[in-house]
Amino acid sequence: MRYVFLTLLSVALFSCGSNQDKSATSNLDDKLPKFEFAEDIKNFDFGTLTAGKEVEHSFKFKNAGDFPLIINNVSASCGCTIPQWPREPIGPGEQGAILVHFNSKGKQGQQFKTVTIFANTNPATTDIQFKADVEAAKDSTAASSL
């Protein structure tokens, strides 16, 4: 009987400890830095572009967490896309921006690109996705010979 009681007591204490650990982890996750973007970052549309045109957009965000937001790196899915980001920590409640520059030279048709942000957030990566419809440039030599 004593063995059963001790076993039940151990299980009860262990499960209480596990809940406290989960609660502490969940509270910490709530305080971690968080991106809060001012717009939809999954469907930005540059619209229709003529091949060779360069465009850029600034994706503005706020750190909605309780700790400084540190962006470790930002990478693009293609060499035609160049991201720029703040190198200094973004404090709680402060704002920042990721500037995305897209060069449509050599592109044609629907373009879907991804820019991945690596930061001290949970999850550790955040994706910005954009699209553009690139039309072939009109041949200027054919028009001038008429």
Rank of each mutant, 00 (worst) to 15 (best):
E36M: 03
N122M: 04
G96E: 11
I41A: 12
V55L: 14
W85I: 01
S10G: 00
G106C: 04
I117L: 13
D139A: 07
N43A: 15
A137C: 09
F35V: 10
E56Y: 09
E56K: 15
F14R: 12
R87M: 15
Q108V: 07
A24F: 07
Q110D: 13
A136K: 09
Y3I: 08
T114K: 02
Y3P: 06
S18P: 00
Q111M: 08
K60A: 15
N73C: 10
G91K: 07
F44K: 07
P89C: 08
S15C: 11
K31N: 10
A12R: 00
D45C: 05
G106Y: 15
A76Y: 11
S10A: 09
G65C: 15
K105F: 03
D139E: 12
G106N: 06
K113R: 04
L8C: 04
S23V: 02
N103T: 01
D45G: 06
L13G: 04
C16R: 05
K42T: 08
A142I: 02
L13E: 09
P33N: 12
K131V: 02
N27I: 09
N19H: 03
G79E: 12
I70W: 10
A119I: 01
F112L: 14
K105S: 06
E88F: 07
H57P: 00
T121Y: 13
F130C: 12
E135V: 03
P86L: 08
R2L: 15
S18K: 08
K53P: 01
I82G: 09
F35Q: 01
P86Q: 08
D66E: 14
S58T: 02
L6A: 10
I41G: 06
N103K: 05
S104F: 03
F14Q: 05
A143W: 10
K107S: 05
A119Q: 04
T50D: 09
E36H: 06
F44Y: 05
R87N: 05
S10Y: 15
P86C: 04
Q108H: 15
N73R: 11
T50M: 12
D66M: 13
K34P: 00
G65A: 07
G109N: 10
V115D: 12
H57N: 04
L146I: 04
S75I: 09
N19L: 10
S140P: 01
S23I: 01
L99F: 02
Q20G: 03
S104P: 00
C16Q: 13
E135H: 09
F67L: 11
T141N: 02
G93S: 10
S10Q: 01
I70R: 14
F59W: 12
A76W: 03
L32Q: 14
I117P: 00
H101L: 07
E94S: 09
F118R: 03
A24Y: 08
A119E: 14
D21G: 06
N73I: 03
N63A: 09
G47L: 05
A51H: 08
G47A: 02
N63F: 03
T114N: 05
L28A: 10
F44E: 11
R87F: 13
T114Y: 11
V55K: 12
S140F: 10
K113L: 13
S77W: 08
P83Q: 14
G65M: 06
K138C: 06
F37M: 12
C78S: 05
R87G: 02
G17Q: 06
T114I: 09
P68E: 04
S58V: 00
A97E: 15
L8R: 12
F59S: 07
F59K: 00
N19K: 06
S58D: 13
V115I: 06
D139H: 04
A24E: 13
T116A: 15
